[in-house]
């Protein structure tokens, strides 16, 4: 039976770092990815959810039960959830089968071997972790977490130590097993592709703050802040200066969007910039790299202190000066904004 997970006003104070306050919820069976760059607090958040670390304030519920608040701190094995660790975190002295039988009291060896077979590890039942490849170890870590039939599965960058060729197999395995059991899954990762492959909803963190959350599709199509666009879509975010005349950008001055938006950035998605050798109305940039694309070439350019991508019909010499221009209407978005709590849909 899967359970929902609700996080309300969660804060974690550490010397030199503050996480939160964070609020979000995952319904039973939901698949959420918490994403953000390194050091943004994703792992800290996951450890608090798992019960490995204590939060300074806030409430965590699993189903109807409060597992952490000001007075409660349920141990990890009392939260009804399991965690898949980054590098498997296997027990070096136990065989693969023993991992499962120890993790799930009552699980017979035959049942363990059957579960291993789901991950293609039946031939490795009597091997110890040192004898497994990185991908096999990660699959064993996943199966160990699934063995006790948890209600919620937490995943800490489960694909990080899996090589490119085994990633698809691992994704498929994870999705299949999670779907079969209608598991609530919460994944943390710094990798956009990993998040999109394994989750339907996203929570974006930056410097310990929740900047945006919602369905992955919406965040990809309509990011509400520049950081989300940069992190998820690889957008270039150029700084702006706001004055009475409007918002000044390297591409000209534009009208200021309505509302209190703070630090505004000009967000340029890949393909929204065009480069020419001939002088135009736009700013100039130095050509760093040139790569062939479907039609023409994709250039990486240094625009002031910023790196941008632009399309060009011809291959400009590396080191030459190019003139760049926007091909779409300028998109001015706040760098980050405090997101409102939302529920992730199953």
């Amino acid at each position: 039976m899967s359970l929902s997970v609700t996080v309300a006003d969660l804060r974690v104070q550490r010397p030199g770092f503050t996480l939160g306050p964070l609020s979000f919820a995952v319904p039973a069976g939901g698949r959420l990815a918490i994403v953000g760059p390194s050091g943004c607090g994703t792992t800290t958040l996951l450890r608090c959810l798992a019960g490995l670390d204590r939060a300074s304030a806030g409430t965590i519920r699993v189903g109807d039960r409060i597992v952490a608040d000001a007075h409660t701190h349920a141990a990890p094995d009392r939260r009804g959830l399991q965690l898949v660790f980054q590098d498997g975190a296997l027990w070096p002295h136990m065989t693969a089968a023993a991992h499962l039988t120890f993790a799930a009291p009552g699980l017979s060896r035959d049942a363990a071997v059957a579960l291993l077979a789901r991950g293609g590890l039946q031939a490795h039942a009597d091997k110890k972790p040192a004898q497994l490849s990185g991908g096999e170890a990660q699959r064993l870590g996943l199966l160990r977490a699934l063995a006790p039939d948890p209600s919620v599965l937490l995943l800490d960058e489960p694909l990080r130590s899996v090589d490119v060729h085994q990633r698809d197999a691992m994704v498929l395995l994870l999705r299949t097993l999670a779907d079969e059991r209608k598991l609530t899954t919460i994944l943390v990762t710094h990798d956009r592709d990993e998040a999109l492959a394994l989750a339907t909803d996203l929570v974006v963190l930056h410097e310990g703050q929740l900047v945006e959350q919602g369905p992955a599709l919406r965040l990809l199509q309509q990011p509400a802040c520049a950081f989300t666009a940069a992190f998820l879509l690889g957008a270039s975010c150029l700084p702006t200066t706001t004055s009475a005349a409007g918002v000044a950008t390297p591409f000209g001055t534009f009208a200021r969007p309505s509302g209190e938006l703070g630090d505004l950035r000009l967000v340029i998605l890949p393909g929204e910039l065009r480069a020419e050798a001939a002088p135009g109305s736009g700013p100039t940039a130095r050509v760093l790299t040139v790569a062939p694309g479907k039609a023409g070439f994709t250039l990486r350019l240094a625009l002031g202190d910023h790196l941008v991508s632009a399309h060009c019909d011809t291959a400009l010499p590396i080191g030459s000066t190019a003139h760049v221009a926007l091909t779409t209407a300028p998109r001015l978005l706040p760098w980050q904004r405090r997101a409102t709590p939302a529920t992730v849909q199953p």
Partner: peptide, 15 residues
């Protein structure tokens, strides 16, 4: 020298 994560993984075991 033993990996800390492996011990943390043990904290989820229902024993």
């Amino acid at each position: 020298r033993l990996p800390l994560a492996a011990e943390e993984a043990g904290r989820f075991v229902l024993r």
